[in-house]
Amino acid sequence: MSLNDDELKYKNVINTLKGLTKVKAPRNFEADLMRRINSETFNEKQSFWEKLFSPSKLIPSAALAVSAVILLFVLNINSDEVENPLLMEPKVREDVIQTENISEVQLPGKDQISSEKKENSEETNISKFKNQTPDSGLQENNRGFSYTTTEYSIDKNGLNFRQVNLTKEEQQRLNELKEHFKMLLKNSRNN
């Protein structure tokens, strides 16, 4: 079907559409248009930095930053009890201090030792060894007991961080077992 045939076939429709009233723009169209263009041009002139630091955006951001700083400051004040583990000095363990001669140290007497509670964690190794077997390094001198560390010096390998507080009976039993094993060792060597 040719173009003219189509036009003829729909002649009524085409004439109807061509007869429609032409819709026009309102009278204030140009005025409104230029007003919109001018306002958009004004908004575009603001640079990126001006937009970033405009009061509408800067004030809420600044308020948020100040609030965060105040909050951190208040929390830091209230958390005096909590120490920064990275800034803490390591605790000095008095029970593993290595000394060469502590003859000047006045050792406590027997009464004082017996009255000490076994769960006292600050009990030193010196007082413990006072009641031990003669094999210990505890020796008498004219100034009291002195403790030489040649046999019982604690080196790095010998550090025992797990402090076990033994009773007198347990210590005695332990020493007996030690002696027994020594005897067995001797016998095995002889054999």
């Binding site: 429609l20 723009a25 169209f29 140009e30």
Partner: peptide
């Protein structure tokens, strides 16, 4: 402005909307 207003109005059928589009 007038031809476009006519065209857009006939397409979407709303006068205020067509003025805005033009």
């Amino acid at each position: 402005k007038n031809p476009l207003t006519n065209y857009v109005f006939r397409f979407i059928g709303d006068y205020e909307g067509c003025v805005d589009i033009v």
